[in-house]
Amino acid sequence: MTMQSTMQSILVDRPEIVRDVSRSTVIADVEKPLSAWERLYRVPLLRKGLILLVLAVIWEVYGRWLDNPLLFPPFSAMLQAFTTDLGNGIIPARTLVSLQTLVIGYAMGILLAALLTTVAIGSQIGTDLLETMTSMLNPLPAIALLPLALIWFGLGSGSVIFVLVHSVLWAIALNTHAGFRSVSNTLRMVGRNYGLNGLGLVRHILIPAAFPSILTGLKVGWAFAWRTLIAAELVFGVSSGSGGLGWYIFENRNQLETANVFAGLFTVILIGLIVENGVFATIERRTIRRWGMQH
């Protein structure tokens, strides 16, 4: 009796509420289109373009203020040098030479990385092999191997491809292996439940499940490959009569054509942007974003 009276003193006594939620009372705009500005802002290409534009303006202003085309030509001078050499076919030819070597080295790197990680996933000793090799060779700058490569493969593209493979292989192998290891045990068990094992399990379960990591490895590998290639061409110069972009940069520096040096660097940056925002972004959108593995 006393208990009930104390409860009543604490709790506020009020009637129950039951409402009739009808359709007519729902507010008018459950869905409302975004404003034009908001929609434009949501396009990543436009946002990134804006950043590039601002950077170009800063470059131009600083270049003009410095007024020393030998040290730092303004953006417009670089653009002029770029369009001239683009028009007369020098930059396209040099780019083609560089890209050819790059693609061969990159493809070989991917192939070897795939082989190595497949071996690594199959057995403990394979894992140890990959881990030891990666920790040994990954920190080794590819360019440091170039003198050796020149002795082994001579003054051809063989040497450059060798250092390219070295720069690509470990980054991709490391990421792919980390990706394989992070695949949930449940997914592996599901795959084995279907009767998959060995290569079938790698192909149908591990590779797609580890795809976010693999893609990161491919991106890092691509960037490493570019860096190594340009550096190798700078050190190593021309091979069999036709040099690449690195050689183009080196050549123009010797002639103190600084605007052309910048045009060469600009080409490297441009290709990087295209590959990153064109190729890799498309792959990302069609795979891991679509699958909800990345947001």
Binding site: S184, L187, M189, V190, G195, A209, T287, W291, G292, M293
Partner: peptide
């Protein structure tokens, strides 16, 4: 083997791709 199909507790048992 597929003659004994498992249904797991975890939601990540479906292939997300």
């Amino acid at each position: 083997g597929p003659d004994r199909m498992m249904v797991f507790q975890e939601f990540d048992q479906l292939l997300p791709w």
